[in-house]
Simulated assay, not measured.
Amino acid sequence: MAFLEENEWILLNEVAYNISFIYTVEEMQKAILNRWLPFLISYDAAVFSRLSVTEDGDFEFMDTEGYNLSLQSIQVWKNQTRKDDAFRWMIYSTNRSTFAEDISQPGSRLQDSEIYHTFWEPNDLSCSAGLCIAFREEPMGFLRLYRKSGSTPFSPRDLFVLEQLRMHFAYRLAYEAKKGDSRYFYAKGYQEKLCRQYGLTAREGEMLDLAVQGWSNDDISKQLSISIHTVKKHFQSIYAKMHVRNRVQMLQCLPISTSKVNFDELQ
């Protein structure tokens, strides 16, 4: 694809890997805004928030992370964005996931909006690029990048980069939202298939399932009423059978990476 050079594709793959495997989703959000994404797209400010849909069909922002914005500005952004009908349309639209806004664009009504006067103008912002993150049409998150006045607008190439990361974000945020229900992530019968494929015992299969849910060795020890030594011994057996060295490599063998998931088979 002409948008990216070879070294940029390599960096993009590295970013995608870290989205899936950084230790906590909060750390992932911070690392994306502060360390990884600026290597691929330049921006002066940003907001990355998870979404939760309420029973009445509305939505709430959760664990919103900002870049180069005050806490007050982030709160204004959250309050004003929830009132924005255009945002609501973007979140629930199935036609596109990326978009761009530019106050200098002909026909733009942004300068007449309340969010422009309360958020854009005080922060000297002039254009933005956004990514709506959804998993199987369920809103999961929202990423918004901004540039200050005098900057060039975001390009189709910038939106292309965001689109390449979309499903990696979607699966990670869906995993976090559905954590504890491993059936949501395994293809039908996949857990049993793994046990047969690698010759795992029933106990090893149970421990593998707990590891997928994010349980630590201490948690597993307490849950199964066995010693830490026994837990480690079981995992060493699992690693040997799956031909991996550690838990990270073990998880990479499972369908919890977007490149290995058949979304049509998910329960």
Rank of each mutant, 00 (worst) to 15 (best):
L69K: 01
E114K: 14
R50P: 07
Y92W: 13
V47K: 00
L51F: 07
S113V: 00
V76A: 02
Q75A: 13
I115L: 12
L51V: 11
S73P: 08
N68Y: 00
F61Q: 10
I103V: 15
M90Y: 07
P106K: 10
D102R: 07
Q111D: 09
R82T: 14
A86I: 13
T98I: 08
E60W: 00
W77T: 01
G107A: 06
Y116Q: 00
F48Q: 09
S52N: 06
D63R: 13
D84A: 05
I74T: 12
K78T: 07
S70A: 04
S108T: 13
Q111H: 05
S104V: 14
V76N: 04
T118S: 13
T81H: 02
G57T: 01
N79W: 02
G66H: 00
T81I: 05
E65K: 15
M90D: 13
E101V: 07
S93M: 02
S49A: 13
F87P: 10
R88N: 14
I115A: 03
Q80V: 06
G57R: 01
E114I: 12
I115G: 04
D84W: 09
T98M: 03
E55Y: 07
E60S: 11
D56V: 06
Y116I: 00
N79T: 04
G66W: 02
S97V: 10
S73I: 04
N79G: 04
T118K: 14
G66M: 02
V76S: 06
I74V: 15
S93I: 02
T81S: 03
L51N: 07
S108E: 02
I91Q: 12
Y116A: 00
I115P: 03
R88C: 15
Y92H: 15
T94G: 06
Y116D: 04
L110A: 05
E60G: 08
D63G: 12
G66S: 14
M62P: 01
G57Y: 03
D112S: 13
Y67I: 09
F59W: 06
S52A: 07
Q75L: 10
D63H: 14
F99S: 12
E101R: 12
D84I: 08
L110N: 01
Y67K: 04
G107W: 06
F99H: 09
E101M: 13
